[in-house]
Amino acid sequence: MDFDFSFLAEYSGVLWRGLLTTLQFVGIAVVLGLVWGFVLSLGRTSSNKGLYWLATLYVEFFRGTPVLVQLFWIFFCLPLFLGVELSGFISAVIALSLYSGAITSESFRAALKSIDASQFDACIALGLPQGVQTVFVILPQAMLRAIPNLLSNVVSLFKESALVSAVGMADLMYVGQNIANNVARPIEILTAIALIYFAIGFPLTRAVSLVEGRLLKVVKA
């Protein structure tokens, strides 16, 4: 069997643009997901029953259904609901961000829960008012502890972002499949695409374990 990777050079520009689109989707979904996830985690730790259940249902639903279904739902149904046209780009961004928010809120919540009860004892023993306790003791520790999970969420979103190709967004996946169809050389092109994803996904995953090891040492006092 002959492999011919030389033709790939011809398409490097298109692939590059596809990759940028992918990264753009991921970047926006991560940032919006951080904000939305923080709001959701407040709801999930709230003592208000209504808020708690609303946030919990939301998070469980988005974690309990395929992202592909969510994407199609936003893409096909949301415009009907809202009665306005949504571009494919906007739909895909909304879908990824809603999902990102759900997994981000879980990271925040787990981080909050992992703080040892004795830290609260120490705050009382030092007579720290509630506000000081939250802002200077609990929140910074929660943020530190959430970092590894937040990073691994970025990896997840990076991988899930390939789904936007299914609704016609010209991301790396979409561009790759298109070229593969046009030149009838699926092995070379699909392998190349996989390697590009890997070249970004692998260092990110490594970074997660590195950061995790470092942080564990710090927060374990």
Binding site: F158, K159, S165, M173, A194, Y197, G201, F202, T205
Partner: peptide
């Protein structure tokens, strides 16, 4: 490889 690339690809 399987952990670091999209399941779709």
């Amino acid at each position: 490889f399987f952990r670091c690339t999209p399941a779709l690809i």
